[in-house]
Write a protein that binds this DNA or RNA. Structure first.
Length: 834
RNA sequence: GCCCGGGUGGCGAAACUGGCAGACGCACGGGACUUAAAAUCCCGAGCUCCGAAAGGGGCGUGCCGGUUCAAGUCCGGCCCCGGGCACCA
């Protein structure tokens, strides 16, 4: 008797699929519905571990299931190949980043092939190839033409460890996203930005189109990140400085009669004019300087003491005409709103704390509608709810909502203010002072300034001979023969831009390239994208909830406005799978807790690895790796292999029958049990694939089915070969999306001439799932007291009667008063006593 | 502080619309096979109390309360863990 040889079986079927071109996606096929399923492309570094594999296993199960359902499936794979680790490795061991990257890609590809994932490998892409990044540059030029790409000097996040600039999205709690212990510094640099803020509103509004298809929390995270806030801008004239007005942004203009001071940020652009000629100028300058050096660490911000000083200036409240002092306060942000706020201690907690410290007056201008009225001298904290305006001139008596509306309109009419919406989202800084990325395709000419590289000169190729030091200047600047070039406009001397693009630019549009990966005239053909897009199912980690997924949505909208795509959103459905952890933390090379995928495949076979990752937890949950668990998966596959092996000989020539046409009336008791269990399992597994993807329960169900088949041994007595073959065959078909190699092998052993990759998903028969007799639970006062087996069609009244007459129940209710009897058909009877 | 998740046996988990809590698996215990071990097969098992046993009772889904014939599931209040945002005006 042959043992289950995972290595041999897996190699065999991978070869057969390849020869069949089983996973090639067909462009322009209109006879079938298309289905684009995609896993986030990996950064090829370190080892492929079971965390990666979980992602691809989920995607592969979906891809294979959809093919069986008759879809024309696009399921590609590629490499996010630019990035810092390649450069750091180059500095450390002296290999060229390209060689290091390509070696990693080769290894990644080998491991993915060893796992037999059903990718269309003809479409493989690598973002570090000029054939790819050429189109990055092309997109950049289009954005430059549209004013979406622009250059500006500004404060940027600088990671000393990466020796480069980071986007806001790459700063987590003030630390670098790659170096969790390295504090990000602020530097003033001239940089390239993409105007993502132009799309703030649309990025927010279009989330409505993603509802239902995207996890709620991802949408919430993006919503928070964009941070829309509606309010008003109001100008306070500075007393004694003609023409100087300080604008504040507020969401609570209704509290403006309660203003005790005007607070400006230390970095406010009008600070110079404001302080000109006031007493104590020098000491104020010193305080401002120290405020500007405040820490960006989240923990520091949260605990920072509120500080400020009076500037000696006063401003005029445009509503009340009141003269209020102007203060500089450390908690006012120069980068948000207008860099100045009105201080309303009674109705803002921060202002309340500030006023307590510096003894500014507290004035209640919004009163509670019910309950104890607010009194300024008794308040322990600010009242920030809506209520009714009091002591607010002509607005007194209005509800807060109406006061906001009316005051905003009046401010606009009198030209000292206007309604305004602000966003937290900032433009995306994409310049990186590193080598291993796509060169930004512009040159600087003394005569013509910034000149885009013409399309026909793309790609601007990365030079090979670069000295990599990691010291913080762009390495490309050290390659004079590359930097010095001619101005495309005037032909005079010019210098190339030496910064490269953030690698998130590469991954913002890569999934379009899969539809037309070898196109050398355009990033892709419009018709191909029209056919395959939007992506039906995207699968990846929650870590990209903001970064990659927000950038991708932005790119799509830009491309739509460039009229090269027609849709508004690139991804219809998103699935965020949980992490694979060991010791409670995500697997990563730096933590040294990785379980290598290739070791897993070599030791147990990839089907076993796949089965375990799918079985151990539902796919959206984090999964703690457990070596013993995988033994269980191996045992199950062995068990089913032996079962089929034992009976296959007798079944090879039997007719294959899905079971739907079996003469059920004539079937033996054993056959009925087997067919019923099979179709019940098939129904629930089908529902799992169509619904919530709880592969863990699907596998549990198949295990139960196999246990049931075992329990019916001997199977060569009282079970016809046709039925047994159907039962085992359906089992193999159900396993195929999850453990494809062994499923194919079992299917072949049963004597089926075609491979499963050419087969359809079996249809269950509702008729066959039905039980003839059902177990009904009997409760007395909600407590389980007995069970009876009744005919499936037994009427409710009769079921109640049977329950009351039951030998176990009757004595328990004898002589007691029955209040009522509740019956749920086919499930339970609850007798309420007393 | 605000906004999301989550808390079920020794462990991973299941229970989809309120209806047998713990399916399936891991680990564990007992047995069969074996000279022996591994593998395999069969059986057992939430905790606890009564009983020699067969069997039976009570308790049990983070805590407290509520709705209901019936609550892991619904409602109110709290505790703990994870994630996101954060002096955002």
């Amino acid at each position: 008797m042959a043992e289950y040889d995972s290595q041999g079986i897996e190699a065999k079927w991978q070869k057969i699929w390849e020869d069949q071109h089983a996973f090639d996606a067909v462009d322009g096929d209109t006879s079938r519905l298309k289905y684009y399923v995609l896993e986030m492309l990996p950064y090829p570094s370190g080892t492929l571990h079971m965390g990666h594999m979980r992602n691809y296993t989920i995607g592969d199960a979906v891809a294979r299931y959809r093919r069986m359902r008759g879809f024309n499936v696009l399921h590609p794979m590629g490499w996010d190949a630019f990035g810092l680790p390649a450069e750091n490795a180059a500095i450390k061991v002296g290999t060229h980043p390209r060689d290091w990257t390509n070696a990693n890609i080769q290894e990644f590809r080998r491991v993915l092939r060893r796992f037999g994932f059903s990718y269309d490998w003809r479409r493989e892409i690598s973002t570090c190839e000029p054939e790819y990044y050429r189109w990055n540059q092309w997109f950049f030029l289009r954005m430059l033409e549209k004013g979406i790409a622009f250059r500006k000097k500004s404060k940027v996040n600088w990671c000393p460890e990466c020796a480069t600039v980071l986007a806001n999205e790459q700063v987590i709690d003030g630390y670098c996203w790659r170096h969790e212990t390295t504090l990000v510094e602020q530097r003033e640099l001239e940089q390239w930005f993409l105007r993502i803020t132009q799309y703030s509103d649309e990025l927010l509004a279009d989330m409505a189109k993603l509802e239902g298809g995207w996890p709620e929390r991802v949408l919430l995270m993006q919503q928070n990140w964009i941070g829309k806030s509606r309010g008003a801008r109001v100008r306070f004239d500075v007393d004694g400085i003609a023409g100087l007005g300080l604008e504040v942004f507020t969401t609570r203009i209704d509290t403006i009669y309660g203003v005790s001071a005007l607070l400006v940020a230390a970095g406010h652009p009008q600070m110079g004019r404001l302080l000109e000629g006031v007493m104590g100028h020098a000491s104020m300058e010193a305080q401002i300087k120290s405020m500007l050096q405040r820490s960006t660490k989240a923990a520091d911000i949260a605990t920072a003491e509120k500080e400020g000083f009076f500037t000696g200036r006063f401003a005029l409240n445009p509503f009340s005409g009141e003269r209020v002092p102007v203060w500089v306060a450390n908690f006012v942000l120069a980068e948000y709103g207008t860099g100045a706020v009105m201080c309303v201690p009674a109705h803002d907690q921060r202002d309340f704390e500030f006023a307590e410290k510096y003894r500014l007056p507290v004035k209640v201008v919004v009163q509670r509608v019910s309950g104890e009225p607010l009194r300024a001298d008794r308040m322990r904290e600010a009242y920030t709810e809506y209520g009714q305006s009091v002591e607010s001139g002509p607005y007194t008596g209005l509800a807060s909502e109406q006061a906001i509306e009316k005051m905003t309109a009046d401010a606009a009419a009198k030209k000292f203010g206007a309604g305004e919406t602000t966003y937290r989202l900032k433009d995306w800084g994409i310049s990186r002072q590193r080598y291993w990325g796509a060169p930004i395709p512009v040159v600087y000419c003394e005569k013509d300034g910034i000149v885009p590289v013409p399309d026909e000169n793309l790609p601007v190729r990365l030079p090979d001979n670069v000295a990599l030091t990691g010291l913080g200047q762009s390495p490309l600047a050290g390659v004079p023969e590359w930097v010095n070039t001619k101005c495309p406009k005037c032909g005079g001397a010019a210098r190339r831009e030496t910064d490269t693009m953030d690698t998130f630019v590469d991954s913002s549009w890569y999934f379009y390239r899969y539809t037309d990966p070898h196109n050398d005239r355009a990033p892709f053909e419009a018709a191909k994208v029209r056919h395959w897009f939007p992506i039906d199912q995207y699968i990846g980690g929650i870590t990209h909830a903001i970064l990659h997924l927000l950038y991708s949505r932005f790119f799509c909208k830009v491309m739509r406005d460039l009229k090269i795509v027609e849709h508004d959103e690139p991804i219809s459905r998103l699935f965020t799978q949980g992490m694979v952890q060991k010791g409670g933390v995500a697997m990563s090379k730096s933590r040294g807790n990785v379980v290598g995928a290739i070791e897993m495949a070599e030791k147990y076979g990839c089907d076993t690895g796949r089965m375990y990752t799918l079985f151990a937890a539902p796919p959206e949950k984090d999964l703690e790796w457990n070596e013993q668990g995988i033994e269980g998966a191996a045992r199950f596959l062995n068990r089913i292999y032996r079962l089929v092996e034992k009976h296959a000989g007798a079944l090879r020539s039997a007719a294959m029958d899905w079971g739907a046409h079996v003469d059920y009336g004539a079937a033996s008791a054993k056959e009925k049990v087997l067919m019923r269990k099979t179709h019940q399992t098939l129904k629930r597994v089908t529902n799992d694939f169509e619904g919530r993807w709880h592969f863990n329960t699907s596998i549990a169900l198949v295990m139960e089915l196999v246990n049931e088949i075992h329990a019916q041994e001997p199977l060569d007595q009282g079970v016809s070969p046709a039925i047994l073959k159907s039962v085992l065959g359906i089992t193999a078909l159900m396993l195929y999306p999850m453990t494809p190699h062994i499923a194919e092998e079992l299917w072949e052993m049963l004597g089926n001439p075609r491979t499963i990759s050419q087969e359809k998903w079996p249809e269950y028969s509702e008729e066959l799932t039905r039980e003839e007799r059902v177990e009904v639970v009997i409760q007395i006062n909600g407590r389980l007291r007995g069970k009876i087996l009744v005919d499936e069609s037994l009427a409710e009244d009769e079921t109640k009667e049977r329950a009351l007459e039951d030998a176990r129940i009757a004595p328990l209710i004898a002589g007691k008063k029955i209040v009522k009897v509740v019956a749920v058909p086919k499930k339970l009877v609850n007798i309420v006593l007393q």
